[in-house]
Design a protein around this nucleic acid. Structure first.
Length: 150
DNA sequence: GCCAACGTTGGC
DNA sequence: GCCAACGTTGGC
């Protein structure tokens, strides 16, 4: 059992979208490190903070759970998708995703608030220059944040 | 294998 | 819209 932080642009998929759809494929990851986390490290039942990025108020907006093994991300084969990858093929898919299911929505814990906690100073997603859309969260960080989520 | 150029992420 | 940081590409 491991913990994660997964970034999504709310314009594309927000916590409200996830709540409405119950489960969504985590499509659009085009970074090998993030892909490898999904392929090699994630397990069914792992929980993740659902983080809103690229928006006016970035931060943790809810909690979701990994509910499928890694499988090919269909958007890579769709020429009309911004995530289309001409170098990938269904025979040899390059990009994977997992499905996540809605657990709960929380009051937004903003990035600014997260940066204010000394207990979170080592959190990977808060490190300078970090751009990974999926990062591991330590059990201590998970518990600390969970206690502060409303 | 090096590395410059370029593209992307994402906060501000 | 800006820009720091960093990943990827491709020529050599």
């Amino acid at each position: 059992m491991a913990y994660w932080l997964m970034k999504s642009e709310p314009d594309e998929v927000s916590i409200d979208d996830l709540e409405a759809r119950h489960t969504v494929p985590w499509f659009g990851v085009r970074n090998y490190q993030a892909r490898n986390f999904m392929r090699d490290a994630m397990q069914l039942g792992d929980r993740a903070f659902f983080y809103h990025s690229g928006c006016a108020e970035p931060g943790i907006a809810g909690i979701c759970e990994i509910c499928s093994p890694a499988h090919p991300d269909e958007t890579q084969f769709d020429a009309a998708s911004p995530y289309f990858d001409p170098k990938s093929s269904p025979e040899k898919p390059r990009w994977l995703c997992v499905d996540v299911k809605f657990v709960r929505k929380t009051q937004l814990l903003t990035l600014a608030e997260m940066r204010g906690f000394a207990e979170l100073s080592q959190m990977q997603t808060l490190q300078r220059g970090n751009r990974l859309s999926i990062t591991p969260v330590s059990p201590a960080e998970w518990d600390f944040i969970l206690e502060r989520l409303k």
